[in-house]
Amino acid sequence: MQTPIVVQEVHKNFGEVKALRDISFTVNEGELFGLIGPDGAGKSTLFRILTTLLLADKGKATVNGLDVVKDYKAIRKIVGYMPGRFSLYQDLTVQENLDFFATIFNTTVKENYGLIEEIYVQIAPFKDRPAGKLSGGMKQKLALCCALVHKPTVLFLDEPTTGVDPVSRKEFWEMLQRLRQKGIAILVSTPYMDEAILCGRVALIQNGALLKIDTPQQITREFSKPLWAVKAKQMYRLIQDLRSFEDTDSCYAFGEYLHLTLKHGEADVDKLRAYLQPKGHEQFDMVPITAGIEDCFMELMKSEKQQ
């Protein structure tokens, strides 16, 4: 069995804009690999290169051992692709869309029903509804069905959960887990950092360059600085006070807490408490915590900028 996805030193420019810089990674069989980064980081460009829709300026990439430039016809037979925006026919019904995509991939819905059954039963009640009238979550499920209908060995999902509500997102990820267990290699991109932990391995991408490739657990483990979660009743005032503290390294809002790193780590804690004391923050709370992917991403972004 060939390695599902191999990317080696891929570069791509659009005029002056460097969309991708020196991208290399591999995705193994049965792996759920996440490409995590904000809009404009270069995720879609990379997807299009791998799905043979764009040519890279430099570098080499293979899908199942097939070259994305030379063997594009063969690749197009074995991959499933869900582009970034909803790309189904809005005026065709759910059933018509499915049948159409099955046929153009030379197959039928019946033939590979086993693979899509679990997702299909969820959208089956709406099978006579035009795709354009489905809710966001349903649309994504239908699109996934269409991308799976020909039993691809590699699945490319470009931001499948963007703009979808948290419930549908969660269900979608559960489906991906089960597909992975069936041996399909999946490359999925997302701008939501919290989805990183759902992937086997992730690549963090920003401004066309990879910041890091590893398991999410390892990435968070490597977060070198001590981190605190801080909160008080008046959060806005707290942010301002912390930011003006001379030894604050970074201070960002995270849910109901602020995440704080200090220039000299533990050594600064007492000094900070002394600094905050006269400010009289009510319900003040400060606890050490372990970093999440988002903390790491922000830290990596910062060090990237400094380079």
């Binding site: 043979t52 829709l53 692709y81 582009p83 790309s87 189904l88 026919y89 995509f101 269409c146």
Partner: peptide
């Protein structure tokens, strides 16, 4: 415009 061309192109058609 819809993006469906992307899928058609990635298909064996």
């Amino acid at each position: 415009e819809l993006g469906t061309m992307e899928i058609l192109l990635v298909s064996p058609l």
